[in-house]
Design a protein around this nucleic acid. Structure first.
Lengths: 108, 108
DNA sequence: ATAATCCATAACTGGCGGGCTATGGATGAG
DNA sequence: CTCATCCATAGCCCGCCAGTTATGGATTAT
């Protein structure tokens, strides 16, 4: 896993609004842009931009359905984060390896 | 764990230079500011600022020794990150609980 | 056909943050 | 005592990025 990937992930998750959108998608599943905008506290274009950035980081997928776009969380994209934490900790690799395998097979 | 803590952690780790400093402290242990500056690719004041931010996030500790300041990584501060990832994933809590306990008892 | 809804993009703006140089206080060396 | 070294802070600058409004293409409703 390159350090670029870590950078992209960390920078993407550093913004509170964006992280909140991702959290919501993780908690409540599939959401339209309108639904996300209703709770985001920012304008619809801002939400669209955040979704674009999340998508570039692989954290979400979009699915077009008529004039709506549904977004869903891609939890597997969190794997590099777990990997990095494991490297920084330098211990208990075994436990983390289990988790990584799970995450990597979670492309739904 | 408050969402403020997550925000502080993510924002602190989002910068590549800062993350590299933390990684180095994790890998190679205790370092003086001069030693860190030598490899950081930025000026000494920049390194000092990064260390200050890392310290505010609880990720490093400083120890004064004469005119030198030694910094060391506080891996336990990564616990909220693990916690957040666990929440987003919503699975395998047991495995992560083990890790969290370990991290929280690692205040050296 | 017309109007309304959904979403993405463009264009602009402002603030935040990471970089720098300059400086000074504290400590160690000669 | 004087000078050099280590580090932190101050002050400044500039680029990036998250926010906004405006707009338009696509789809659905009337």
């Amino acid at each position: 896993m390159t350090s670029q990937a870590h950078d992209l992930l960390f920078r993407t998750l550093a913004d509170p609004t964006r992280r909140a959108i991702f959290e919501r998608l993780c908690r409540d599943g599939d959401q339209t842009v309108a639904a996300l905008t209703a709770k985001a506290g920012v304008s619809q274009p801002a939400v669209s931009k955040h979704l674009g950035i999340l998508k570039r980081a692989g954290l979400v997928r979009d699915r077009h359905e008529g004039r709506q776009t549904h977004y869903s969380a891609q939890r597997a994209a969190l794997a590099p984060l777990v990997d990095w934490t494991r490297q920084m900790s330098g211990f208990w690799q075994a436990r983390f390896d289990d988790l990584e395998d799970l995450l990597k097979r979670m492309d739904q």
